[in-house]
Structure formats: structure tokens, C-alpha cells
Nucleic acid binder design. Sequence first.
DNA 1: CGCGACGTTGATTTGCCTCAACGATTGTGG
DNA 2: CCACAATCGTTGAGGCAAATCAACGTCGCG
Lengths: 192, 192
Amino acid sequence: MKSEIIEYLNRYVETNAEEEEIFESSFNEVIIKKGQHIILPDFVAKYRSYVLKGAFRAYVLDKKGNEHTISFAIEDWWISDVNSYIYQQPATMFVAALENSIVLQLEYTKEQELKKSNHKFETFFRIIAERSAAFHQRRIISNLMFSAEERYDHFIEKYPAIVKRVPQYALASYLDMTTQFLSRIRKGKTHK
Amino acid sequence: MKSEIIEYLNRYVETNAEEEEIFESSFNEVIIKKGQHIILPDFVAKYRSYVLKGAFRAYVLDKKGNEHTISFAIEDWWISDVNSYIYQQPATMFVAALENSIVLQLEYTKEQELKKSNHKFETFFRIIAERSAAFHQRRIISNLMFSAEERYDHFIEKYPAIVKRVPQYALASYLDMTTQFLSRIRKGKTHK
DNA sequence: CGCGACGTTGATTTGCCTCAACGATTGTGG
DNA sequence: CCACAATCGTTGAGGCAAATCAACGTCGCG
């Protein structure tokens, strides 16, 4: 039985045993405890992380000290500060574990080697980058088009698994509203 | 002297004359008149377009009929409905020319051939996808963190060339505010 | 030169935030 | 395993940033 990361790879490109060995051995399995940060502002994000188990949140702090959640990641998702990772510049985000978690870390230089060494790996990272761009664009559209309540409705429909696992303040800040307002929206739903 | 699109390509990958010929001949040069649409909702975006001359705007309509600008493109930028193009599914956006323009259109199937035929082209499209993802993420962060006026300040500082060329209602809807409110922000600036 | 698209300005409204206080739940050390 | 503090979520009152509504000025272009 193949590991999760190879199954993930094989969704986008076909590989042989040797390639799978190369790919898999480029990752480090790391245990991250709940509350622990894996990326901090001003440090360069050296890795991107594939979540094997657990849940993560990437967020920024504004000048008033309010948190804004940029992304969530549960099993089978990636998490990093994309801008920091791809340009190898200091991060602006925090990334912290919401649960005790296990990730597969891929170091930036290893990723470059993978892409350089084999067209298939290049294709793989191209596809996930495209999908990431498309995903972010859908979020921009939804943020521009919808009211707070519509954004909430849309999110619970699309990502019910995440709603169950993240604290409400994190979801509220992802949806660009206060925890109080999200609480009121939820109250409205259950009463009708 | 090399064409714009080859110079663009060479920012990210080195190529020889033969590769450049293959790459360049995959594009079609097309004239688009001001006001003309190149992508419409419900139609699959068959092309991505590199702007040689002119300016474009991608936007969506919400249920009240309000427009929300998703992206702008001037010379040396790409424009398309990313979700429609990469998944070859019906578009949700409009893309229209803001000026009389000239674009280089790359057909989806041709792009696939390019990427398949040569590792360098795969690398090129991987890099622009990564940068697109990073760009979108920066916009999400800025939309979450900043007030209307701060978003405006940030935009004019970062993209002065675009501010000069797009109508104010388009800029307002990109920055997620009304044209009236943008007008008031500008008035505030000039008086102090 | 006239008309429709674009931008401005003022008055009013509203969606969501802020502040504040109080429950509920969680986790942790004694 | 309980006590209790810290964290998280709820609720109410009041406020504000930005939207809406409405009217008018202006400019580009056919």
C-alpha cells in the first residue's frame, strides 16, 4: 500500500517505483504539537508542509493586533506562507497547529532538485500551483460578492469538515467578520 | 530583437532559437477593440491572453447586478478566468478590453502540448502559476487587514500605472468599495 | 452638439464592529 | 480527579465605516 504522499502525487502524475522512492525520501515526517508554530513572521519559510494528520491555521496580525486567518489545512492539504516559501523571503504569517499533528516537510532546496531532476515532478508542482491560484481567486470572488452571512453559508457547504475542527474565532477571522457576529449568524440559523 | 513574449519567457527559463520559435508560434496575435469581451460567463475560457498593448478588466456580477473587478491587466500581464481556463469549465467572469488592445492568445490545448514537449515550458508555466498564487494571496491578506482608504493607498503606491488607465468605478470595485466612497477618499487626499 | 457614461457631493441608512459583561468549556497542576 | 483559571463563545447596547439613495456636473465621443 502506497503512502499518502505518493497517492497524492499519483493523482496528478504517474510514477514508477524509483521515482516514488525519490519523491517520498525528499520529505521529513515531523510531529507538531497543538499550539506550536511552524512559521513565524520575519523568518524565511524553509518548508512547505503536507498534513498527514491534524489541522493548521495560517494567520496574520494587523496593526491593532487582530488576527486574520489566511488559510486552514487538514489532512491531505498543504500549508505554508506561499509568498515566503516561493520567493524565499521573510514570512509575514504565523502558521500554527490547531491540533496535535503530523506533517511531511519538504525543504525548498529539495523541491528545486525534484523539479529539476524530473519533468514529472515539475508537472506535479505546476498543477498544485495552478490549483492554488484558482482556489485563492475563488476566495477573492466570494469575499467581494457576498455578505458576511452568505460567506458563512458558502463555507459550511463547501468545507464542512473544516468547520467541525477549527475554533470559531479562527473561522470568523477567515470569513472576515468578528466572532460576535459569527455567533449571531449561527443563532439566526438554528432558530429558523 | 526578440519579441515581448520571448523576453517574458526568458525571464524565467533560458531557451534556444528553436524553442523560441515553437513557443512564439503557439500564440495568435489578436486585436481587441475597447469594450469588447474576450471571456463571458458560461463559456469555457479557451485561451489565456498575454497583453501586448492595451488594458483589460476581469469582473463578476453579483445577484444585485453590481460589478466586482477581479483583476486588471496591462502590457506584459496575463488575463483570463483562471478557474475556467485551467479546469476547462464554464467561466463565471467577464473579461473586457478597457482600451483598444492587442493580445497574444494561447489556446489551452497548445499550452498542454508545450508543457508536455519540453521541461523548460513546464517550468515556465509552473513559475507563473506560483507567482499568480502568491499574488492572489497577497491580495486576500490586504483585503482582510486594511480599511478602504488603506487599500486605496496601498494600490496607488504599488500599481500607479494601472490607476492612471482604468476608470474609477473599476478601481473602486477592485478595492471593494463604491465609486462614491472612492471619490470621497480622493477628495480627502487632495485637500491635505 | 447632444447624449450617455462617468464622477462628485450631500443626506440618510445599515451591516457589521466595538465595548462590556457574562456563561460554557477546556485543560492543567496540585 | 477535582478546582479553578484560562480560553472560547454568547448576548446586549451603542457606534461607526461604508453603502445607499438622490441629484447634479462633466466629459468624451458618435
